[in-house]
Computed example of a mutant assay.
Amino acid sequence: MSKISVYMNQQASHCSYEFWRERIHRSLFRSEVLYRTPKSLSELNILLRQDIANNVDTIVSVGGDGTVNTLIQELAGKDIALLVVPGGTANDLASELGHKGSVDEVIRCIREKQTKSIDLININGRYMATNGGIGFGGDVARRINELRVKTPAFKKVMSFTGKSIYSFFVAQELLTGDFDTYDFEVDSQELSGRFTASAVWINNQAKVADTYSIAPLTKNDDGTFNMIILTHPTRALLINCFLKILRGIHPINDPHFLSVETSKVSLKFATPIDFFGDGEVFEKNDQFNISSLHAGLNVFSLKLGQKNLTPLAPEQVALS
């Protein structure tokens, strides 16, 4: 009998404890399942380390990308598979793994043993699984996270709007926010020098929010990641770049859209600045040493063997 621990983030926008527990129990009734609902980061870390020490077979994350980011700090390099059940708003990693269907379908990954290894990105010792960066974009993530904490009703808004809430905040930031730029040094084998830019994006997968294809050739299992530097000197040029991305046009001919694939890079700033990753704001620093941890995380993925899955029975279809 396999041992499974399910971590539920009850603060995530689309996460209801009873809803998820009922459906997970229905799919995993033959397994030994523990349900974890930690009330603090320290409690989560204690429980997760206990699970690792007890050699659990699988960790299930029910929440958003922030929940995943917390879990991978301990799971990186471990021989424990992570199943990501989309329970947040953006659900970037869940979407990348093909987890867009019913809860029952996603949980079936465990029974079918559909696992693969993906890369993680190490930023000054903290891991990231999806996308992140510095400057524009990070400001959007920061504002949304602050509203989640300070305004309880905002969670209901996010539940109603879903991923489109990010489009609204991006548009607002582009049109009315400060057009801040940053001077910094880049040191990598593929690209080096001094730059002035409104943002640096670090991408472990092609899409953000399963909508915006900002790095279409990027994969999360090849030992490299994508770095984009936005050097647009005016707000108008930056808006034009974003409009292309929104229309599904990769701005490859934009001279201010610098994009490279690399496995290691160092970014140096004059003053400490925030880095955001997996929808979370990391600690401020004036230097970020970024590298790929190849095959650093074992995950379940519906993209593996989808054609061989047997059809779901009508009663197994989730009511989400």
Rank of each mutant, 00 (worst) to 15 (best):
I4F: 02
Q172D: 09
V200G: 03
L191H: 02
L217Y: 12
Q11H: 10
V208P: 02
W201N: 07
A129C: 13
G125T: 02
N45Q: 14
G193E: 09
A90M: 10
D119K: 03
A206D: 09
I134S: 04
L246T: 06
G87C: 12
R21W: 01
T218P: 04
I72W: 14
E18V: 03
M158R: 10
G133S: 11
R21T: 01
G305T: 06
A209H: 01
V85N: 08
F225E: 09
I121A: 05
H294K: 08
K264T: 09
A12W: 13
L97P: 10
V84R: 00
C15E: 14
Q189G: 05
I290G: 03
L319F: 08
N203I: 09
R235P: 12
S95C: 15
E173Q: 12
T130E: 08
S16E: 14
L217H: 15
F160A: 13
V33M: 01
I118F: 06
F168S: 01
F195S: 08
D254S: 01
G64Y: 01
G296P: 02
V56H: 05
N55C: 04
D222P: 01
K39E: 13
Q306Y: 07
D254C: 06
G305F: 09
V281K: 14
T89N: 09
Y166Q: 00
P311Y: 00
T37M: 12
S167F: 00
S167E: 04
E18Y: 07
T89I: 07
G162H: 00
K219G: 03
R194N: 15
T151S: 13
N220W: 09
I110Y: 02
D79Y: 04
Y127L: 03
I121R: 05
K78V: 11
F276Q: 15
A171M: 03
I252G: 06
C15S: 14
L47M: 11
L28D: 10
F160W: 12
T161C: 13
V265N: 07
V317W: 07
E261T: 01
F276W: 07
